[in-house]
């Protein structure tokens, strides 16, 4: 049979990603020039466009280590973990884990968590829309206080919590300042922080939340009843402030449903 064998695009793809072979067989140029030079356009485009996609998603990660280091690291990531989805918006979900295992980045121990936060930001940006529960709807639930502990609270699809052993929110926020270097001087990278990522309307907001608030959110995400979630949060963090946490969630439009299970209604 003339033409491509079944595996010709496999060879082409390998040559693009790994450089082995450096040029697939069977390529020609009108002037008989070495096709490898021409093929390199494709290889460069594949690798560079994917590195660019990562640079878009992880701007603070890149600033922390510098463009040269970031792009060199991203190149290795691209070659080891090329996209498995045709939707590039979420490419790089594995980068934080890659950084954790990447010896040259060990000098920056908080880098992986900053990458995790940046990925959550992108996920929140594109997450499904959901209407926040109105204050009126929440107020109606106060009419039957006895069943309130059984309420189940639904949270916005964009909401995510990231617990870090490093000052992940402060580090990220310092890079939003006009003078990142100056802002960073005030940050203790070794102070543990927990981030709340939430899209309020069209803007993704990142907040630093106390442990109790994080525990409360995690409980509700797992479907715990309102009363139990609040109990657990208080146990996890004696300073847990339920009203403040609910206020934060409501202000960000994060509470989308509040339902009383049928069995609990009187």
């Amino acid at each position: 049979m003339r033409g491509m064998r079944v595996s010709d695009q496999r060879i082409f793809a390998d040559a693009l990603l790994t450089g082995r072979p450096s040029c697939p067989p069977g390529l020609t140029a009108w002037n008989g020039s070495d096709p490898e030079r021409r093929f390199a356009i494709y290889r460069s485009n594949v690798i560079v466009s994917l590195i660019d996609a990562l640079a878009d998603t992880f701007p603070v990660t890149q600033q922390l280590v510098g463009e040269e280091f970031f792009r060199a690291m991203a190149r290795l990531f691209v070659q080891e973990h090329p996209p498995r989805s045709r939707i590039l918006a979420f490419y790089g979900e594995g980068l934080a884990n890659f950084i954790e295992a990447f010896a040259p980045a060990a000098a920056v121990p908080y880098l992986a968590d900053v990458a995790r936060l940046e990925m959550l930001r992108v996920s929140a940006y594109h997450a499904a829309d959901a209407m926040p529960l109105t204050a009126e709807a929440i107020s109606r639930l106060l009419a039957d206080v006895a069943v309130l502990p059984e309420a189940r609270i639904g949270l916005h699809p964009s909401l995510a919590v990231l617990r870090s052993g490093h000052a992940v929110v402060s580090l990220w926020a310092a890079h939003q300042a006009a003078d990142a270097a100056q802002a960073l001087a005030a940050v203790d990278p070794e102070a543990a922080e927990t981030a709340l990522v939430l899209r309020a309307g069209l803007d993704v907001e990142i907040s630093r939340i106390p442990d109790g608030a994080a525990a409360f959110i995690e409980q509700m995400r797992q479907g715990a009843a309102f009363g139990d979630a609040a109990e657990q949060a208080s146990a996890a963090d004696p300073a847990f402030d339920l009203a403040a946490t609910l206020g934060l969630l409501m202000r960000g439009g994060a509470i989308t449903t509040m339902t009383i299970p049928r069995s609990a209604t009187s």
């Binding site: 280590v65 463009e67 060199a72 000098a107 908080y110 001087a185 203790d188």
Partner: peptide, 16 residues
Amino acid sequence: FVAVPKGTCEKTVSKT
């Protein structure tokens, strides 16, 4: 491979 990060991480302070 440039094994030395050269970015804002140099500005972060560390107690350890």
